[in-house]
Design a protein around this nucleic acid. Sequence first.
DNA 1: GGAGACGGCGCC
DNA 2: AAAGGGCGCCGTCTCC
Length: 560
Amino acid sequence: MNIYHYVPPQQPPNGYVGIDIEIFGMNDKTLHRPTSGKFACLSIAISPEDVYMIHDINEIPRAMYAVKDSIWAIHNAKFDLMNLRRWDKIEPRKKLWDTLLIERILYGGYFNTFGLNDLARRYLNVYMEKETRDEFKTATEMNEQMIYYAALDASMALSICYAQQKGMTKNDFKIWNEVDRDALWAVMDMKGMAIDVDKWLALAELNKQRGEELKASLPINPHSYKKLKLYLIERGFKGLKNTQEDTLIKAMHKYPKTDAAKYVQTILDSRDYLHSSSTYGRNFVEHHVEYDNDVAVIIPDWNITGAETGRMSCSDPNLQNIPVKATKEFRECFIARPGHIIIVWDYSSQEPRICAEITQDKRLLEILHSKNDIYCEMAWDVYEKRIQKSDPLRDATKPVFLGLNYGESSYGLAKTLGIEVDEAERLQNKFLKKYKGVAKLIEDAKHEKKYVKTILGRRAWLNPYSNQCERNAINSRIQGSAGDMTKQALAMMHKEWNFDCPFSVTGIIHDEIVADVPKEYVNDIAKFGQQCMVEVAQKMCPSVPAEAKIYMGSSWACKE
DNA sequence: GGAGACGGCGCC
DNA sequence: AAAGGGCGCCGTCTCC
């Protein structure tokens, strides 16, 4: 490998170059937030053998200009591009090849490691040591080894890009070109979610106090699973399998007169408060708050293909699991910036609609076209009762259908609904008899052993040796299609955003998109976002009417 | 003292 | 025998 320490010569159009940036002083939890760390070097491989290395930030624009017409091969492009944006203007472009995201398109569910070193081993039979990479965390200057390491990264990205191309189908390209690449550009332009730090801390303190008090009143640590289980068994909960909430409540009803039963409520309450205060407590803001024009914001790491199905995920911190059911008080802390309004768009019954599209189930399509409530209609089919939305029977219907979408057994449904197994089996059979398309989806899944595809053709590999294989075959198609849909909607919003304010999306929660927009644009943007979501859904699922709801308010708790 | 497994639990 | 899919994070426990 030849390493040249100057700007590369101007590259011809449409060739591939490998790019890698190294930053000193980054840590794993914050490397998605390119506000800290010091530039180490930029490596550009114009061939696997020839790498140009830049050590001066002032030369970055010239170096990037030299490769402006090339296709950029980068491993985890989000990191490199976000950092390059600190020193150069990097516009969304089609000429991008993210070896990480493309590997996930190729092998989601097949492999579970996707590091550059993993790909180097798989594709090129090359071993890349990790020790030097860690040196960048503490070093402030390059040494010989680090120079070689940085050059190798760029070279490897390019070689892997070539190797990946050989194994890609037309449809794999399509997923990259029409879903993940554009979603990546959208994610890179997302804003942090503004947070009311004082309110958050007050809430955290209160939860902590309540939790600690309850914990202190117990004879045993409610988080110490092993000891707690033994303790409760000794005091009357015969054969206790675990200490999960529903298990404890059941045991309490089964053995109401025991010593153990007296503790259940306190154990649950204590765990609840302490869970809140630990996950959504002081650390949450201390580790994750940044300031965006003096506004405290949370900037998490949005992962384009976090799930094997192709769904997105989120970490550091995860904003996709902020409590909302039991209490809205956490989401109330995520507020609009001054002079702004929060918009939440939400696909109505996204997965049932996708299920209808995939299965072409006659009854399901009929319901969705009728505009009647899905679960009220299903309650009629399953229980032979006409009900209103407020009827508790509606809540007993949802799990029958949704459970089947996940491959749930009658045993599982019985547990969920708190009924006998044969009753659960009867309900499922009743449902499947009426919904023959859904029944076929489940039947077909039994024969899938390699992979299944989403509506757009994204593969999710199956593990034929796993007892989850069949359930994954059912669910991956639906969940993955939903992931594709939301990502495409996000990408479309990003691409067609032409308001006089920057792209202001702050969250993606699977079937929900959150934005924080200036008051004067709120109605236009709300409508615009809704149109994008509906348009994407209708294109992907032409047999089903699409619906995206709009909510607005001063905080993320505006959904009612 | 750190890594990793596991249990538990928040969301869709 | 297990018994509902997908995540990420926390505390505990075990092991080195």
